[in-house]
Amino acid sequence: MPNLLEYTPSGWYCPIGDFFIDPHAPVERAVVTHGHTDHACPGSRHYLAAASSVLVLKERLGPDADIEALPFGQSMTMNGVNVSLHPAGHVLGSAQVRIEYRGEVWVVSGDYKTVAEPSCEPFEPVRCHVFVTESTFALPVYRWQPQSEIMAEIHAWWRANQDQGRTSVLFAYALGKTQRLLAALDPEAGPICVHGAARVFLPAYEAAGVRFPPIHSAEAAEVRRFAGRALVLAPYSSFRTPWFHALGPTSTASASGWMQIRGHRRRQGVDRGFVLSDHADWEGLLSAIRATGAERIGVTHGHTEVLCRWLREQGTDCWQASLVRRWSEDVG
């Protein structure tokens, strides 16, 4: 019997079920874990995804994409292979893919975070024989503080900027991070403006029952109306564009796991870095791996070598599942 999954140039492929998981190229059948561009590649014939991610995926894959919605925890069969999706806690609708064939269970994690927060379904450990895990932040230097502490820092920064009459511009990935921040921001603290790149995803979140504070557009004129008081959420790519320069005096910050490292923050050229990641930290990865009870671990997407070596030294059977690392803005 062939392996349930193998890594091909187009991505993870299940030869028995004849489908791909997060393929990097158009294929016949794709199971998509979530809407980030390094996972959701347009052009495939049929998609299968978690029900709560469909609206998000339509933004990414096009309104005409053929996306079949599968609610979390329900299963379906593809050529005799049983497929089900389970929350990965990364962004709204992000899924781990569980596949089962003749009693053997594999789980592909996609991107995940183990800490629960209100903007997406909390991560759910799934028992399996083989677990394919991401490893974006697989180094012991990555250790996240609780979200409440980071949010307190963000609010303090926002207040300090208001005292100095500066508009706060917080750079965050348009899908996931922005909505997570929005759901945790205190609307009493001042007006909140959201860049169009992130606004397109709000209806999907609202449809899933995520509650947001009142939001203003981030058109320069609108932001200037609240000059010195507003907090603007925008993707990093908008930094130093004409739009940015039209905002008046600002203080800038980024919210991402990479902000743990001073050098990353300095290279971004922002005033502040807030360490807030939609991925698991080192301990999060290790505990998630343990919770699966898996006998074999495939490591992909990040510091594969480090995590593999560490697991092996702990006596876990392990292989580096992919060496391809496609950078995109969201890997933070």
Binding site: L139, P140, V141, Y142, R143, Q260, I261, R262, G263, H303, V306, R309, W310
Partner: peptide, 20 residues
């Protein structure tokens, strides 16, 4: 070895050790 890997990623020894 993992301290070295971290150092490689962080690029600053004082910072690496502080984080570890």
């Amino acid at each position: 070895w993992i301290v070295e890997e971290c150092y490689e990623a962080v690029g600053d020894l004082a910072e690496t050790l502080a984080l570890l």
